[in-house]
Measured scan of single mutants.
Amino acid sequence: MTEYKLVVVGAGGVGKSALTIQLIQNHFVDEYDPTIEDSYRKQVVIDGETCLLDILDTAGQEEYSAMRDQYMRTGEGFLCVFAINNTKSFEDIHHYREQIKRVKDSEDVPMVLVGNKCDLPSRTVDTKQAQDLARSYGIPFIETSAKTRQGVDDAFYTLVREIRKHKEKMSKDGKKKKKKSKTKCVIM
């Protein structure tokens, strides 16, 4: 069974824990209790493949930012979460993405942009803004509501699919490099 290491990042209060708990335990946590770091595991079937999701729910508070490099190193894919009623959390996505790329030393890291709290009427981040940002990053965008469960499975499952595509691409690139290195030079 394939294991996928997913990391949920975003500013404090955007609903990272609520999304994760909704996926794992099928219930909505409405009281806000700032996370330092929590880890969850769940076995699911995605596109006919049974897999184990190892999900790291991270601290959004700035005082825990020193811990970010460590979990970013171990993560295979990242859910970059903002709240649709919090423009600052949307603007912060850029910083999370840049930090992930720096730590992973790669421009090509599996990510999904997630606009959470889409059940709320007080939207300050337009869907088109988020779609445009995701398009500019070359990553999928999904709106979710941890409260109603809308888009929750889709967000995590899409990230797994992005990781699969990335692994497939990397193995193809690896095979191309191996083929090239088999060419021999004969000096007579």
Rank of each mutant, 00 (worst) to 15 (best):
T2S: 12
T2N: 11
Y4A: 10
Y4F: 12
Y4I: 11
Y4P: 15
Y4R: 12
K5F: 02
L6G: 03
V7K: 05
V9S: 12
G10D: 02
A11S: 11
A11G: 12
G12F: 09
G12E: 15
G13L: 08
G13F: 11
G13I: 06
G13S: 12
V14W: 06
V14Q: 08
V14Y: 12
V14E: 12
G15D: 02
G15M: 15
G15Y: 02
K16N: 05
K16D: 05
S17G: 00
S17E: 01
A18K: 01
A18W: 01
A18G: 10
L19G: 14
T20K: 00
I21M: 04
I21Q: 01
Q22K: 12
Q22S: 11
L23M: 10
L23N: 12
I24E: 01
Q25S: 15
Q25A: 15
N26C: 13
N26S: 14
N26I: 03
H27P: 01
F28M: 02
F28Q: 00
V29R: 00
D30P: 04
D30Q: 08
E31Y: 03
E31C: 04
P34L: 00
T35A: 00
T35Y: 00
I36M: 01
I36P: 00
I36W: 00
I36D: 00
D38W: 00
D38S: 01
D38H: 01
S39N: 09
S39H: 05
S39C: 08
S39P: 00
S39Y: 02
Y40L: 00
Y40D: 00
R41M: 09
R41I: 06
K42T: 07
Q43I: 06
V44Q: 14
V44Y: 09
V44N: 15
V45G: 13
V45E: 13
I46S: 12
D47P: 06
D47I: 02
D47S: 11
G48R: 11
G48D: 09
G48C: 10
E49P: 13
E49R: 10
C51R: 12
C51H: 14
C51A: 11
C51G: 08
C51T: 11
L52N: 13
L52K: 14
L52F: 11
D54S: 14
D54G: 13
D54T: 13
I55L: 14
I55M: 14
I55R: 00
L56E: 12
D57K: 00
T58L: 01
T58R: 00
A59W: 00
G60I: 00
G60P: 00
Q61V: 04
Q61K: 08
Q61Y: 04
Q61R: 04
Q61M: 09
E62A: 04
E62C: 03
E63C: 04
E63Q: 04
E63F: 01
Y64E: 01
S65C: 05
S65T: 07
S65E: 06
A66G: 15
M67N: 09
R68P: 01
R68A: 03
R68S: 04
R68T: 02
D69G: 09
D69P: 11
D69H: 12
D69L: 06
Q70K: 13
Q70L: 04
M72W: 07
R73V: 10
R73G: 08
R73C: 09
T74D: 11
T74W: 08
T74A: 09
T74M: 05
G75D: 02
G75F: 05
G75W: 05
E76P: 13
G77E: 15
G77C: 14
F78N: 11
F78G: 03
F78Y: 12
L79T: 01
L79A: 09
C80D: 04
C80F: 13
V81C: 09
V81A: 06
V81N: 03
V81Y: 07
A83P: 06
A83H: 10
I84T: 13
I84L: 13
I84K: 13
N86T: 06
N86C: 11
N86F: 01
N86A: 12
S89G: 10
H95E: 04
H95S: 07
Y96I: 13
Y96R: 14
Y96F: 13
Y96G: 02
Y96C: 12
R97H: 14
E98C: 05
E98S: 04
E98N: 12
E98Y: 01
I100E: 09
I100F: 06
I100D: 05
I100C: 07
I100P: 01
K101Y: 15
K101T: 12
K101L: 07
K101R: 12
V103S: 04
K104L: 07
D105V: 04
D105I: 04
S106I: 13
S106Y: 10
S106K: 10
D108L: 07
D108K: 13
D108T: 05
P110W: 01
P110S: 03
P110L: 03
P110R: 03
M111F: 10
V112Y: 12
V112H: 01
V112G: 02
V112M: 09
L113N: 03
L113G: 03
V114L: 09
G115N: 06
G115S: 11
G115K: 03
N116H: 10
N116R: 04
C118Q: 08
C118S: 10
D119K: 03
D119I: 06
L120R: 13
L120K: 03
L120Q: 13
P121W: 11
P121K: 12
P121A: 11
S122E: 11
R123C: 11
T124K: 10
V125C: 10
D126P: 09
T127H: 06
Q129H: 07
A130D: 14
A130V: 08
Q131M: 11
Q131E: 12
Q131H: 10
D132T: 05
D132G: 07
D132L: 05
A134P: 04
A134L: 13
R135V: 12
R135P: 07
S136I: 06
S136T: 05
S136D: 15
Y137I: 09
Y137S: 14
Y137G: 13
G138A: 05
I139A: 14
I139D: 06
I139S: 06
F141Y: 12
F141V: 15
I142Y: 14
A146I: 01
R149K: 04
G151D: 03
G151V: 07
D153M: 08
A155P: 05
F156Q: 03
Y157A: 07
T158S: 05
T158L: 06
L159D: 08
L159R: 03
E162P: 02
E162L: 08
E162Y: 08
E162T: 10
I163T: 04
K165V: 14
K165A: 05
H166Q: 10
H166M: 11
E168I: 14
K169Q: 13
M170Y: 10
M170E: 15
M170C: 07
K172A: 09
K172T: 13
D173V: 06
G174V: 06
K175T: 15
K177E: 06
K177I: 07
K178P: 08
S181A: 09
K184F: 01
C185I: 05
V186C: 14
I187S: 14
I187K: 08
I187Y: 10
I187L: 06
M188R: 11
M188Y: 13
M188Q: 11
